[in-house]
Design a protein around this nucleic acid. Structure first.
Lengths: 118, 118
DNA sequence: TAAACATTTGAACAACTATTCAACTATTTC
DNA sequence: GAAATAGTTGAATAGTTGTTCAAATGTTTA
């Protein structure tokens, strides 16, 4: 099934492959980038990020706004925290969340433009 | 467990919730946006998009470049095609793929900036 | 037409993930 | 200190998804 080099096809454009390979980002970086997209690739987290871009909110606010349990929201906020996309501050019983990153806003807007362009 | 309105907590910032709700995007749009991110949120697809941004390539080229089977690449190319992120042209036995969207390049670069900023 | 090669596809399997539920911590207020 | 409220967490479950494998399609060439 496989060819000499372990590939299951002939190498047809070695020059292109070599040229692209040279320009390719480090594998780790590409993993980090796709991990970043993976986080925005869940609609609950996307909604949370979108909401926090408009206003600082507590867990309860987010739960009411998105019509979900506090637990579900809290789990996703943990993911966002671990990814350094949100920050939080405690005030009494409540914990208020904020966006940690301004890039996200721009990326969001650009993705939105793409989606609406159909 | 739940309160009057079916929420499991008191509504503490009704004004904020109302204000954000008004600004919130249509649910369908938010789903589309997160679906878009979901597609870039896989490292194989991210690598394919990155490679195609550098050069038009056939399935075989991509398989060799990314050290994967043609089948695996082809499956992911189908996902990218269904999402209108790549276009293809057939030339004899080979099928060449291209980026279909220029937004992606910018979004990618911005995400990269974010990732490298640590 | 048959053989060879590039690509596609469907089914199956393994790995991952989002939500639920119940139990827990932290803070305030009575 | 006890009760009430806000939030967090771990385990379990159900749903999703990426890769593999085998079989298929489409195209060229002998």
């Amino acid at each position: 099934m496989n060819k000499v080099d372990g590939y299951d096809c002939d190498v047809v454009h070695e020059d292109v492959i070599a040229s692209v390979k040279k320009k390719m980002l480090d594998e780790d970086v590409l993993f980090d980038v796709s991990d970043f997209f993976k986080i925005l690739g869940d609609s609950t987290r996307a909604k949370i990020m979108w909401a926090l871009d408009k206003n600082e909110m507590c867990v309860c606010d987010l739960a009411v706004l998105l019509n979900m349990t506090k637990s579900a929201i809290s789990h996703q906020l943990r993911v966002l925290r671990d990814a350094d996309l949100v920050r939080f501050r405690r005030d009494g019983k409540m914990v208020y969340y904020n966006l940690a990153d301004e890039h996200v806003k721009l990326i969001f807007e650009m993705a939105l433009e793409h989606v609406l362009e159909k």
